[in-house]
Amino acid sequence: MRLNYPTNIKIVKLPCSGRVDILHLMKAMEEGADGVFVAGCLEGDCHYQAGNLRAKKRVAYVKEILDKIGVGGERVAMYNLSAGQGPRFAEIAREMTEKIKALGPSPIRIAKRKAAGRPTTEEAA
């Protein structure tokens, strides 16, 4: 289909969104990702019955933690779409990217850069 989606997204492939662990999301944020979204199957369509519902709860759990530590829970999100919805994936990717861009760089990344003596590109601009 040759659909375009933003190049700043790094895809981590997993057999099921139920494999997404709280720690995966935490680590991604801790390493400096500006946002993370989990793309799971449509609710009710999980091949493993409830993997996407588990992922949803874990995303909500991580949102809560990020809110409490001042990083902002809106930086993680859960989306549901089927494997046949390529255009929808590209749309979500753009939507999430725009949302995160509007939020600006993650405070973790800013702090990491500062600590390393390098401002973020956004700040430099």
Partner: peptide, 13 residues
Amino acid sequence: QVLASALRMYFRQ
């Protein structure tokens, strides 16, 4: 691990 990660992020930011 989750708590430590959260605390590291807290201190970092």
